[in-house]
Structures are given as C-alpha cells and as structure tokens.
Amino acid sequence: MPETPLQAQPDEAMVDLLVKRVTEGLSSDEQRELDVLDSATASAYLRDFERAAAAVTLAASAGAEPLPAGFAQRIARQADEHFAHRDATSVMRVPRRPSSNSGAFGWLAAAACLVVAVFGWMRAPAPREPPTVAVTPPITPAAPPPAAPQSPAEARAAMLAKSDSVKITLGPTKDPAAKGMSGDAVWDPATQKGFLHFVGLASNDPAVQQYQLWIFDAARDQRYPIDGGVFDIPADANEVVIPINASLAVSKVAAFAVTAEKPGGVVVSARQHVVALGAAG
C-alpha cells in the first residue's frame, strides 16, 4: 500500500480482518479483535477497502436486469411512508419475515420476577416476531418537542424534580461498548416521556449499527419488551441526554435494556450486544 504522511500503515493481521469484514463479515470475536487495534487506521482502511469492493461490484454489474414489475412502485411507497414518518419524527421499518431461529422455548417462561426476566432476556433465544408494532419513533438528541423548549438536560432535570417520576440506574454489561459506562433512565408515567442519560457509552457509526432501547412494562408479556426506538452516541460525546418516546403506552415501567443493532434497529432483538440494563427497585 502506498505510504502516506497522514496515516499509519496497518499490519497484516489488521488488513486480514478488514478484508474479511468487507468480503464476508466478521464474527463477534473477530470484531472485538479489530476493535482493540488502532481504530483510526482501521477506519480509514476499512472505508478504502469498502470502496474498492464496491467498485469491483460495479464493474461486474453492467447489463443489470431491471427491478421486477411492481417492485419499484412498492419501494417508492415504502419511501413515501419513511419520509412521512420521519417528518413526524417517526421511522417506518421494513417488514421482516419471522426469525428462523425462533426459540422453541420462547422467552423466559419460568421468570419469577422482572429483574430475572430482563437478565434472562439477555440470554434467551429470540422469539417469533410479534404481529404488531411496525412503527417506531426514533430517539434522537436533536430537536426537543415544540411544547418543551428546554434542552434535553434541562427537561430531564425538571422531570427528576417531579414526585411521580421514576429513575432507574442503567448498568453496563460485559459488552465492549459499555466498558466504563454509567447511566440512568428517568420516566414520567403521566406524560409517557422520559430521558436516557449516559456517561462514557461508546460512540457508534450509524451506518454500521445503532443503539436501541427496550422498555419492559410490568403489565405486558415480558417476552416482548416495547421497542423504545434507536439512537446514536456521537463521537467525542462523553455525556449525553436522549429523550425517550415510547412507541406504545407503558403502564408501569419495570426495566430498560439497551442493545446495539443494525442501522434502523430491529423488531425483535437477537440480544447479541446488550450494552446496558436496569430494573426498577
């Protein structure tokens, strides 16, 4: 590779990992191995290799057949829905087929309490996709609601002062993204609003993965936590406050879990990367 004054050269092990990631993807162990290497160098070379792979793909795509009849219209309708919901601060998900690895054992059938349920949720196989909940409002640190012209941090402080708000400490798991992280969730049952607060949660590349919040409602089946939407941690943001907008009404919040998922989030988490958990006391 050409020597450049701005960029360190990756060693062979790093190049092998980057090439594998670009061509077939990495296992979680391999990804962790890559994560501990020089991230700036790895990121730069990963982008280059992705571009090179994309260029080869383009070079072999001459004479591509058009989209099947009607499919383009379907995609256009889906785009209309996406932008309509985005404008209403919501995101429409692509409908997914039921997961093929649905566990025969279901989720947490024997869980005796919610804390156990949440921790069991981390380890249990993914259930069949529930038949509802296609629309998920995103959690974004941008643009507070028009009715509350405070910053998220100010609004969180005001919510904490309310006597009926609930504060739940969120603890890190062993996931590398959670290393050194601390946080909490504040929830107001009356307004059905809340805030996540994190210090030291690793930043994410939204093109690669996003964080997703799951809300456990004591009044609901614990196998199906409420999708709390996706959010990002910007680079260099050590402390963040993120508004929560639950997609469904929460009767009694029992616990929160945060997972790392593919961009846009998922309908049912495989729980491969649970980064934070916290249950009501």
Binding site: A64, P66, F71, I75, Q78, R93
Partner: peptide, 30 residues
C-alpha cells in the same frame, strides 16, 4: 434499482431474500 437488484440477487440465497434485501438497502439509502 437495477444495480441494487443485481447485487442483491448475486448475494442472496433466494429471490425472496433478494426482495427483502433490496427493500432494506433502499431504506438504508434514505
């Protein structure tokens, strides 16, 4: 559309998978 469809066809197991993938790719683009 044709470009994405051709890539999806090559790297998917079935035409149905390719359709799902194509929808997801366009959503990623938006």
């Amino acid at each position: 559309g044709a470009l994405i469809w051709s890539i999806a066809r090559r790297l998917s197991r079935t035409p149905s998978d390719a359709e799902d993938a194509t929808q997801e790719i366009f959503l990623d683009i938006w």
